[in-house]
Amino acid sequence: MSELSGTVALVTGASSGIGEATARTLAAAGATVALVARRKDRLDALAQEIGGGALAIEADITDRSQADAAVAQTVSQLGRLDILVNNAGVMLLGPIEEAPIDEWDRMLEINLRAALSMTKAALPHLLSAADSDPRRVADLINISSTAGRQVKKGSAVYNLTKHGLGAFSESFRQEFSRRHLRVGVVEPGAVVSELRDHLRDGVREANLQRLEQMEPLQPQDVADAVLFIVTRPRHQTINELLVRPTEQDD
């Protein structure tokens, strides 16, 4: 029997990059996966590829009502929720003085508020799964970044959102650990993804140049970290997992 047979996982930002790789990986381990993102065409293609009852849900989870509806649809159609992966996020870098404030708002909405909305909506279902077969444990996985462990100029609000996600996760751990609802924070270093597509001119080129100076992580590397966390035995929790490219020196 596969490690996650009989479980249901919901992955946000599942239409590309880390989210897409994570959805594939959890499905391969036996989970039925709900795929949540705004690009329905990509979700439909991924759901067909994954099979196994994968559910494509088009939603803008910065809208709390849509976040609530995505969780409700998952539980209604798939029967339960054992694993929530808060992966959706944006990385809008650049000096504070030059940064458009709407970029800050966007990071706060997606990186923090959307994750909080999804977590709140999923909480009763995760607790129910933690108290029932087949695993008698449930998992909340928050995809953070090395930016949640260190602060660098040019990433002030991105740092803010990722440090905030880490702080929320630690408080969550303290509140729910004895109820076997685990929380794991994955902190990737430089990863090949679409995050850089949203950077402003000038900032994008500098970031890509930095990426070219190393062999970066692939989305599958991060997906493997997620799978490692959620397949630990019931008595064990991996609360933080930092994954950097070997050549990344910051």
Rank of each mutant, 00 (worst) to 15 (best):
G13N: 12
H198S: 14
P245L: 08
I61W: 03
Q220A: 09
S171K: 10
A138Q: 07
L112F: 06
V85W: 03
G189M: 08
H125T: 06
I50A: 05
R178S: 13
L181M: 05
L78Y: 05
G52N: 07
T12V: 12
L92V: 02
T231P: 00
I143E: 00
A56V: 04
D102C: 00
I143C: 01
E240K: 10
A115H: 00
D139R: 00
L160D: 08
T74Q: 04
N87R: 01
L10C: 10
A21C: 11
N239R: 12
L93H: 01
T237Y: 05
Q73G: 03
T246R: 07
W104N: 02
F228Q: 12
T146M: 10
L195A: 15
K120A: 06
H235F: 08
V185T: 14
S15T: 13
E3K: 15
E187P: 01
L123T: 07
F172P: 04
L26G: 13
A67T: 08
N239I: 14
D139T: 00
L26T: 14
A59W: 03
V75F: 05
H180V: 06
V151N: 04
E170L: 15
Q73C: 01
S145M: 11
S144Y: 07
A190V: 15
L92T: 01
A156F: 02
A54Q: 02
L242H: 12
E103F: 02
S5W: 05
A59Y: 05
L127N: 12
V192C: 09
V33Y: 13
L241Y: 09
V191D: 08
P216H: 01
G79D: 03
L126A: 02
A88V: 05
Q236S: 15
S144I: 13
V90A: 00
V11D: 02
S16P: 07
R136N: 07
L92G: 02
L217T: 12
N87Q: 00
G13T: 14
A190H: 08
V186Y: 06
Q248W: 07
L160S: 13
I110Y: 03
R210V: 13
L160P: 03
E103Q: 04
K162R: 11
I238R: 05
R244H: 07
T62I: 07
T25H: 06
G202E: 00
E58P: 07
S76R: 12
I141W: 04
R178D: 13
D82L: 05
R42V: 15
E187S: 12
I83G: 12
M118G: 01
A59F: 08
S16H: 14
L92P: 02
T146A: 09
I50Q: 02
H180K: 09
Q218F: 11
N87I: 01
D201M: 01
V75M: 06
I229K: 10
L199I: 10
S193P: 12
G166Q: 14
N142H: 02
